[in-house]
Design a protein around this nucleic acid. Sequence first.
DNA 1: AAAATAAAAAATATCGATATTTTGTTGACG
DNA 2: CGTCAACAAAATATCGATATTTTTTATTTT
Lengths: 232, 232
Amino acid sequence: MSDNASGTTTAKTMIESVYAELREEILAGKYPPASKLKVEQLRSAYNVSSSTMREALSRLVSDTLVTTEGQRGFRVAPLSVRDFRQIAEMRKLLESRALRESIEQGDEEWEACVVAAFYRLSRIEEALAQTAEKVAPDWDARNQAFHNALISACDNDWLLRFRDILHHQSSRYLRIALVDTSSVRDVHAEHEAITKAALARDADKACHLIEMHITRTVDVIAAKVVAWEADD
Amino acid sequence: MSDNASGTTTAKTMIESVYAELREEILAGKYPPASKLKVEQLRSAYNVSSSTMREALSRLVSDTLVTTEGQRGFRVAPLSVRDFRQIAEMRKLLESRALRESIEQGDEEWEACVVAAFYRLSRIEEALAQTAEKVAPDWDARNQAFHNALISACDNDWLLRFRDILHHQSSRYLRIALVDTSSVRDVHAEHEAITKAALARDADKACHLIEMHITRTVDVIAAKVVAWEADD
DNA sequence: AAAATAAAAAATATCGATATTTTGTTGACG
DNA sequence: CGTCAACAAAATATCGATATTTTTTATTTT
């Protein structure tokens, strides 16, 4: 269920390690959305038996990254504009709720984490501003770390779990939309405002900002998903 | 993932049918929370091979009804007061959101469904009021049908899915708390008020009522769960 | 007697083979 | 020319056996 940040997944069993690896690869876009996941193929690729492979696949259904139907095997979970919009709506609801709880319950240590995460993100954004590079290898990771830090004081496991699922789903859409980081500067300002509001314990404001933050990306990405849907 | 109301689960494969059956039994409390689910035992009980059994179990992890750890097999998902409170909080959030969307988008057909479901529920409550019976075989089903009808015009699949998971989890707590239907009369009034507000398209009011509806049961059940936790 | 260790039992994870179903192809028929 | 049917190929689901790990039990040591 959970992969640790370092990437060193402590896998006690074959199933777990195959599960973790395949999961990453699906998120990385190695297997296209809605494409068939043939057990025999995967089985030999990962050097495990069919039963083991099937079980790993079954476990991926938990994360809604794989679907399975009747007598016709497994598929990578499909993507659609409709789905993306629904995910975005839910993210607004859950992300802002998690942030609110975090702001209400967070202690000084939490504040420190937020500040640190924002700092790390800012530094890489400065670096990116210099180079005309469109690829941001670490930006994604630090951006994610920042958002995780914001809600790290929320203690509702269900909220975090659902939010996590949606977040991963969302990242698949970002991937196919080939989002560049050219708009990083605007995003930076938004992050700064959110950090400020969070530290000032202004939950209403922070939540509003985070919702805007999500909303802002929806339409631009949705447009690209539409284009992607065409040549499928 | 979905079980149809009639209980006639259309299972194309062994895995699916075993999955569905075991799922119902866990929800029905046949296997105590946190108890071990030994593959060999289940395997022979359901007349399937170990691989098939394991796969069915793996699929139950999707619904968070079963947990699995490293090299030590499967267990029924445990229950705790803390978990119950978190579930209740999330239910308030999701149930009210789903209701709001339903109220905003529902058409006349939806209104008719709500009215019908409320009527069916009311009838059985009248009947129960007569007899001093504490057992309400059909009440649960009709109560659930009523709540499903209320949110049936919500079209966000993720919202419905998460809400469904939480609802099932919640029902496990109701079971161990041995909730009687003595408080049915108060509940009836609440249902009536919710129906009224929904039909009047007063989303704010309806949402507030449904949150109260959930809140009201939390403490009484939480207390019983504490007691249950003791003799475990 | 409590703690540590070794042996036995139980349970889990993994494998490769087989039966069943779906998918794809070819040829007959309207 | 397209639809249908029969067949062939591919893929899925299912099985039972084996290797590994965990848990239990028995034995020894401080």
